[in-house]
Computed example of a mutant assay.
Amino acid sequence: MYQWDFSTLWKYQTLLVNGIGYTLLFTVICVAGGLAVGLVTGLGRLSNQRFITAPLRAFVEVFRCTPVLVQLVWFYYALPVLVGWEMSAPMAAAICLSLYGGAFYSEIIRGGIISTDKGQTEAGKALGMTRYQVMKRVVLPQAFKRMVPPLMNQSIMQLKNTSLLSVLAVPDLLYQGQVIAHDTYRPLEVYTFIAVAYFAILLPVTIWAKRMEHGNAEPHEA
């Protein structure tokens, strides 16, 4: 029978802590970048000008309809050849995951806005508000409540997607685990610890997202 020995991991605690820190930092960067891209893209797709909406829709469909792992590899190996300048693995991964998340965030933002009652938009215009004022004062505050649950879920997916960074040798938690497993020949302990670490990080975030979802649903149902 296999003899479990988690004490082996103790001398690699620095690598594991650094891997967790890098994973969390990368998640924050990619979520922030994705939200920025999603906000611009989502609002742009509401335009009546086809020359604006067509390329934005193409961007969304390209990133939604291709695997994120393929995108990561393409951004790191193919994009530098096309643009003619070298790109570090963390930079390529950050750009890729931000754009990937932005494609999903944009649909969430656009869907939240168009689900708002059009009568309120017309009422705002009747009061003399500009389109910008109606969007800022009337539409977005109501749409934001509907957007929070799916935005939180997509942000959780962004954290999960960071586990793919190891294919580019980005020193996240999984990559550090691979290094330790090759050094100790204890893959069961290493990958079990990594699974537990991801679970410990994601469980509180998931519970918080569920509470926010219920908190936003109750006033709406009332």
Score class of each variant (00 low, 15 high):
3 Q>W: 13
3 Q>S: 14
9 L>G: 11
9 L>P: 09
9 L>T: 08
10 W>I: 11
12 Y>E: 08
13 Q>R: 14
14 T>N: 11
16 L>E: 03
16 L>K: 04
17 V>K: 13
18 N>H: 09
19 G>C: 01
20 I>F: 11
20 I>L: 15
24 L>A: 11
25 L>F: 13
27 T>I: 11
29 I>K: 07
30 C>D: 10
31 V>K: 01
34 G>P: 03
35 L>Q: 02
38 G>D: 06
38 G>F: 00
38 G>I: 06
39 L>A: 11
39 L>P: 01
39 L>H: 01
42 G>P: 03
46 L>A: 07
48 N>A: 13
49 Q>V: 14
53 T>L: 03
53 T>D: 03
55 P>S: 04
56 L>K: 01
56 L>I: 01
58 A>I: 12
60 V>G: 02
61 E>C: 02
61 E>P: 00
64 R>I: 05
67 P>E: 09
69 L>Y: 12
69 L>W: 10
69 L>H: 04
70 V>A: 09
72 L>E: 00
73 V>K: 06
77 Y>R: 00
78 A>V: 14
80 P>Q: 03
80 P>L: 03
82 L>A: 13
83 V>Q: 08
84 G>P: 05
84 G>L: 07
86 E>W: 09
90 P>D: 03
92 A>N: 00
93 A>H: 00
96 C>H: 01
98 S>T: 04
104 F>Q: 04
104 F>C: 06
107 E>C: 02
112 G>W: 00
112 G>N: 02
113 I>L: 14
114 I>S: 13
115 S>A: 15
116 T>I: 15
116 T>A: 12
117 D>E: 14
117 D>C: 12
117 D>Y: 12
119 G>W: 02
119 G>Y: 02
120 Q>H: 06
121 T>D: 04
123 A>R: 07
123 A>Y: 07
125 K>G: 10
127 L>R: 10
128 G>W: 06
129 M>I: 10
130 T>F: 05
130 T>D: 08
133 Q>W: 07
135 M>Q: 05
135 M>N: 05
135 M>S: 06
136 K>C: 13
137 R>Y: 15
137 R>V: 13
137 R>K: 15
140 L>G: 03
141 P>L: 09
141 P>R: 10
144 F>S: 09
146 R>H: 08
146 R>L: 11
147 M>T: 02
147 M>W: 00
148 V>Y: 00
149 P>H: 02
150 P>T: 04
153 N>Y: 04
153 N>W: 04
154 Q>F: 03
156 I>A: 13
156 I>G: 14
157 M>C: 12
158 Q>E: 10
159 L>Q: 02
166 S>M: 09
170 V>K: 00
170 V>F: 12
173 L>F: 05
173 L>K: 02
177 G>R: 05
182 H>T: 15
182 H>C: 14
183 D>C: 10
184 T>G: 04
188 L>F: 15
191 Y>K: 05
193 F>S: 03
194 I>W: 09
195 A>P: 06
195 A>N: 10
198 Y>W: 04
199 F>D: 10
200 A>M: 10
205 V>D: 09
205 V>R: 06
208 W>H: 12
208 W>A: 15
210 K>R: 14
210 K>G: 13
212 M>L: 15
216 N>T: 12
217 A>W: 05
218 E>K: 13
218 E>G: 02
220 H>Q: 13
221 E>W: 11
